[in-house]
Design a binder for these strands. Structure first.
Length: 603
DNA sequence: ATCTTGTTTC
């Protein structure tokens, strides 16, 4: 809103519009009075009493009238001082009025005002806080002089907004200057190391912290605990946690999350019990920990007892249900959440879509898609990736591709999902074309991308092409073949009927083949009716997983197909009651907008 | 000026 106020002209007709509505009328009247005073102060300001400008500006800021403050700035014949501009911008940051802050910056540029270091740092911080890292970087690069604060702000911002490598690079650059890192820079860069799981570098910096004699504070302590926790050194993290002089909620929360991520929920529970203060993050970390470790019931119990839920609590439940194969409950929670008046955010939508994808619930997925557009999250890359996957898993490859074309931003997951989608639908050549296009667009494939490419070759019967990618992946894409890639290659040979090649490939593997690799061979033997190899594959699989009922079933089917009824019966008898219970896999299908579950062999 | 919880491809 531009505040072009010509009091005499605009006010009366506006008031008349609301004449009948008494409250609105009063509001209007008050507003008009305010405007008149404002105008008066403006005039006195620009004419005689310029010295009151800073005072008036600060007063307006405190009343939250930032736009009016900007107007005064523009009207002033002389620029205000550095302190006033800094104060104004800090208010913008506090009130998250970033677009206004940007306008102030533009204004400063227009009048050719050269900021001092403190003001420049505040501008830098404004861009950093709202995640506009390109603007922040420009600000930083163009600063004629930088102090510790300038470095601290930019390092912290890079770390916070997911550019941990950049944070580390800048930290090293800072050390090339005459400036010494203090506890601010140290805690930010340690947090970046934690995010990268860069233990070596983190420990190196930890040593520096000690030798530099830098003042420690809770932030630094927390960053160190987080570093060791995220790098799997839970014991070390716990040691530091115990030694903390002023343990706080944050350090406790970090420990709970660390124990949860390492499958040690009992210890997480101990920390939770002993915490003198808990906040919603404490509860959410516990819930997430239980969900990550498959303890859905425990997570539910906590969710019921949590004193105050936020959007993260709900998302943790929805994502947790979906991750634990309970997608129906995930969708129910998603609906329940909205009934309580809680608004989903991008992450909630992404989790709900995962549940739809798991169940191939196209109608639900499309309804959520509508909601996403209505709530303005349709440009989020995570949301779009989840949508892409949902449409692909629901079998609508047309819609998947259309969405892919329209996406404003793509990352490696986007490309992998689309390639995987083509693979699922047997469109091998399309997948390969996209894989080549992805590289032209400058996105580096990861281990999942290569797995999707191999799967595409597998589903389309492109044996030679698959082999070629497999042999060059380490060298060309810097992705070392892992178990899942070997498993996929066995699948590729097996489906094509090259059973002996598949067997020899397994024998030549540099890592010990796991159950899924033998399972792939077993499956192929079933399709191509090879009793000898099938028996071998089943034996190896059962060595690794003695309770794998599916192995017995498939092997018995191989015997049956070969007419070997005695072996068939003997194999069947190996299946215990306990194994039998786990046998039939659940599948989901959507009929008339209702999600139904059915068992294998159901009609 | 700095910290912790939930999201996408296997």
């Amino acid at each position: 809103m531009a505040i072009a106020i010509t009091v005499g002209m605009t006010q009366p007709c506006r008031l008349n519009l609301h004449w009948k509505n008494n409250t609105k009328h009063k509001e209007r009247e008050a507003k008009a009075m305010q405007m008149l005073q404002f105008q008066a102060s403006l005039e006195s300001n620009t004419k005689a009493n310029r010295k009151t400008s800073p005072h008036l500006l600060r007063k307006l800021c405190k009343q939250g009238r930032l736009k009016e403050a900007l107007h005064i700035l523009r009207e002033m014949e002389q620029p205000a001082d550095h302190f006033t501009y800094t104060f104004l911008l800090q208010e913008c940051i506090k009130k998250k009025a970033f677009s206004l802050g940007k306008l102030i910056h533009t204004h400063l540029n227009e009048i050719g005002f050269v900021p001092d270091t403190v003001l420049a740092n505040t501008l830098l911080n404004m861009y950093a806080k709202c995640g506009r890292m390109l603007d922040a970087r420009k600000m930083f690069d163009e600063m004629p002089e930088r102090d510790e604060c300038s470095w601290n702000v930019i390092i912290a911002a890079y770390s916070r907004h997911g550019f941990a490598e950049e944070a580390l690079t800048l930290f090293h650059q800072m050390q090339q200057t005459d400036l010494q890192p203090n506890q601010f820079a140290y805690s930010s860069v340690l947090s970046a190391c934690a995010k990268l799981a860069a233990l070596e570098q983190g420990m190196e910096i930890h040593k520096q912290v000690i030798s530099s004699g830098c003042a420690t504070d809770v932030f630094l302590d927390c960053a160190l605990i987080e570093l060791y926790a995220k790098c799997g050194r839970v014991e070390k993290a716990h040691q530091l946690f115990e030694k903390m002089l002023q343990p706080n909620v944050v350090s406790g929360n970090i420990m709970i999350a660390a124990y949860g991520q390492n499958g040690r929920m009992e210890e997480a529970g101990k920390v939770f019990q002993d915490m003198p203060k808990r906040d919603v993050i404490t509860w959410n970390a516990m819930i997430t920990g239980f969900m990550q470790n498959g303890c859905v019931d425990e997570a539910q119990k906590l969710f019921r007892t949590i004193p105050k839920r936020n959007v993260v609590s709900w998302t943790a439940m929805i994502a947790g249900y979906a991750q634990n194969g309970r997608s129906e409950e995930a969708l129910k929670s998603f609906l329940q959440m909205q009934r309580t008046g809680m608004k989903p955010d991008a992450q909630t939508f992404a989790s709900a879509l995962t549940a739809c994808a798991n169940m191939a619930a196209l109608q639900h997925g499309m309804e959520i898609h509508d909601e996403i557009v209505k709530s303005g999250f349709q440009y989020d890359v995570f949301v779009n990736n989840a949508l892409l996957d949902m449409y692909a898993k629901c079998g609508d490859i047309e819609k998947t591709h259309n969405l892919f074309d329209k996406m404003p931003k793509r990352n490696v997951v986007t490309w992998s999902t689309m390639i995987g989608g083509y693979a699922m639908h047997g469109l091998g050549m399309e997948a390969i074309k996209l894989f080549e296009e992805m590289q032209i667009c400058g996105t580096k494939p990861n281990h999942v991308t290569l797995l999707c490419v191999l799967m595409a070759c597998c589903h389309a019967g492109l044996v030679e092409k698959g082999l070629q990618y497999f042999h060059t992946m380490s060298e060309c894409y810097d992705v070392k073949p892992a178990m899942e890639h070997y498993g996929c290659m066995v699948d590729l040979f097996g489906r094509a009927g090259h059973l002996n090649t598949a067997r020899d490939f397994i024998y030549k593997m540099p890592i010990k083949p796991d159950a899924t690799v033998w399972g792939s061979l077993l499956g192929a033997c079933s399709v191509h009716k090879n009793v000898g190899l099938g028996k071998l594959a089943a034996e190896r699989l059962l060595e690794l997983e003695p309770d794998n009922a599916t192995a017995y079933v498939v092997l018995s089917n191989i015997y049956a197909a070969a007419g070997m009824w005695e072996d068939h019966e003997n194999t069947r008898r190996m299946i215990t009651d306990e194994m039998d219970k786990k046998l039939p896999g659940h599948s989901w299908i959507e009929v008339n907008k209702q999600v139904h579950s059915f068992l294998a062999d159901d009609s």
